[in-house]
Design a protein around this nucleic acid. Structure first.
Length: 266
DNA sequence: CGTGCGGCCTGAATGC
DNA sequence: TGCATTCAGGCCGCAC
């Protein structure tokens, strides 16, 4: 499930391979992936790929006119020169006999063509702070406007963009705060710890190539390593690496949540 | 306006 | 063994 570190690795891979290439042809195999946009091919064909950026969990491919806004959701993959199979939904044929394909077993992901103003509007209304760039003041101001379980608010993309289920649990374990701990009760030391761990865990995960749980790979087909360093995600019932207690499990905001009942406060 | 939940999807894992 | 059910979790849209 691609979160910020995985998406960042996809973007880095794409930058090596598709920058400045021309989109010579478009093959739409599954209409729902482009939200049924009947003019998609016409809008994209012939354009040059000028830049590739990440914003939260979104990939933005900047064209000479307009943008592709891509979200991989759970099982989406953008592959450079990848093979075509029954889960391939879109192929962009590029210059120099290369191609970029979109593969997605569950078809949750989306690839939308947006003008510059549409893109700016979309990001401004839906996507919150960029975790690797936010200041402590920005973070604490935003998060303290929220109530309820801290994990729920770390997952809220309108507050901070890019944290999903894996990294939320890992960040809160490292911070010594239970995922269900009420946001409004966090003291300054908790906030500081959570802030620092957001930055450090995401940065380390990026350098490890992200986490591969089932099938995440970057645009060159390479899996990540960070799953080998998870301390709570996927470790329900196993021993806490800090205090040796048995890790507990619950549901928060509809998601499986693993935490240590003894060395996380709350 | 905010909140919570069903729907979207498929394949792997689990239950009987 | 085989069939049915559950689970995985991001985000949208809708009901309240």
């Amino acid at each position: 499930m691609p979160e910020l570190p995985e998406v960042e690795n996809v973007v880095r891979g794409l930058k090596k391979n598709i920058l400045n290439k021309k989109i010579c042809g478009v093959e739409v195999l599954t209409e729902s992936i482009i939200n049924g946009d009947q003019n998609f091919t016409q809008k994209v064909q012939g354009q040059i790929i000028e830049d590739i950026q990440r914003r939260g969990k979104y990939i933005i491919i900047k064209l000479n006119q307009g943008n592709l806004l891509i979200h991989l959701r759970m099982t989406g993959k953008l592959l450079y020169n990848g093979d075509k199979d029954k889960h391939t939904h879109l192929i962009l044929y590029l210059s120099q006999d290369t191609w970029l394909s979109y593969k997605d077993v569950r078809k949750f992901g989306r690839i939308l063509y947006l003008s510059d103003s549409q893109l700016q509007n979309y990001l401004a209304t839906k996507v919150g702070l960029e975790p690797l760039e936010m200041s402590f003041e920005e973070f604490s101001q935003r998060i303290m406007k929220k109530k309820g379980p801290i994990k729920k608010n770390l997952l809220d993309q309108g507050v901070i963009a890019g944290i999903g289920n894996i990294y939320a649990d890992e960040i809160l374990f490292a911070s010594g705060v239970k995922p269900q701990y009420p946001t409004e009760k966090l003291d300054p030391a908790d906030l500081k710890a959570i802030y620092e761990n957001i930055k450090s865990i995401l940065a380390i995960a990026i350098e490890a190539g992200g986490s591969t749980i089932r099938d995440y790979v970057d645009s060159t087909g390479k899996a990540g390593d960070f799953q080998n360093f998870h301390k709570v995600y996927g470790r329900f019932g196993q021993a806490c690496v800090r205090c040796n207690s048995s890790l507990d499990k619950t549901k928060i905001a509809g998601r499986t949540t693993v935490f240590c009942p003894d060395c996380q406060k709350g």
